Amino acid sequence: MEMTSSQRVRSTEDAVACLRAALEGAGVALPSLGVDPVTAATGEPYALVELGRCNVRTAVRLADALRGAAAGGDA
């Protein structure tokens, strides 16, 4: 059974919400985080997640959080 457009967007919105919560837990906020509207309107199984742009401080926090996760710690 093929997913409808609204089901694909909902699934992607759920993934965005989970990612936003995880990033916030690591002290990182990506203001432009969201569902890419172009791919949400296509027949692809899932829309792309738009991470957007961020400032240098946010980039450093994100890198620190990823390094901490890779090392098995809480960044």
Rank of each mutant, 00 (worst) to 15 (best):
M1T: 14
M1L: 14
E2C: 02
E2M: 11
T4I: 04
T4W: 05
T4E: 05
T4D: 03
T4F: 02
T4N: 03
S5L: 13
S6W: 04
Q7D: 11
Q7K: 13
R8V: 13
R8G: 06
V9A: 11
V9G: 01
R10G: 00
S11L: 14
S11D: 12
T12W: 00
T12P: 01
E13F: 01
E13D: 10
D14R: 03
D14M: 00
D14A: 06
A15D: 15
A15I: 00
A15N: 09
V16M: 00
V16Y: 00
V16W: 01
A17H: 02
A17K: 02
C18E: 15
C18L: 15
L19T: 11
L19V: 12
R20C: 06
R20G: 10
A21K: 07
A22G: 08
A22E: 13
A22S: 14
L23E: 03
L23I: 06
L23D: 02
L23A: 02
L23F: 04
E24S: 08
G25Q: 02
G25A: 07
A26K: 03
A26G: 02
A26W: 02
G27A: 09
G27Q: 05
G27W: 05
G27E: 05
G27Y: 06
V28C: 01
V28L: 01
V28E: 00
V28S: 03
A29I: 10
A29G: 03
L30E: 01
L30V: 04
L30A: 05
L30F: 03
L30D: 03
P31C: 05
P31V: 11
S32C: 08
L33P: 03
G34M: 07
G34S: 10
V35N: 02
V35K: 06
D36E: 13
P37M: 07
P37Q: 11
V38H: 08
T39R: 05
T39S: 15
T39F: 06
T42D: 13
T42S: 15
G43K: 14
G43Y: 07
E44V: 08
E44C: 07
P45K: 06
P45C: 08
P45H: 04
A47C: 08
A47T: 04
A47Y: 02
L48V: 09
L48T: 07
V49I: 15
E50K: 14
E50M: 12
E50I: 02
L51G: 04
L51Q: 08
G52H: 08
G52Q: 09
R53E: 15
C54K: 06
C54H: 09
C54N: 12
N55D: 15
T58D: 08
A59R: 12
A59S: 11
A59F: 05
A59K: 07
V60I: 15
R61E: 09
R61N: 10
R61C: 04
R61K: 14
R61Q: 13
A63M: 10
A63R: 11
A65G: 10
A65M: 12
A65W: 05
L66D: 06
L66M: 14
L66C: 14
G68S: 14
A69Q: 10
A69C: 12
A70W: 10
A71S: 12
G72D: 11
A75P: 07
A75E: 06
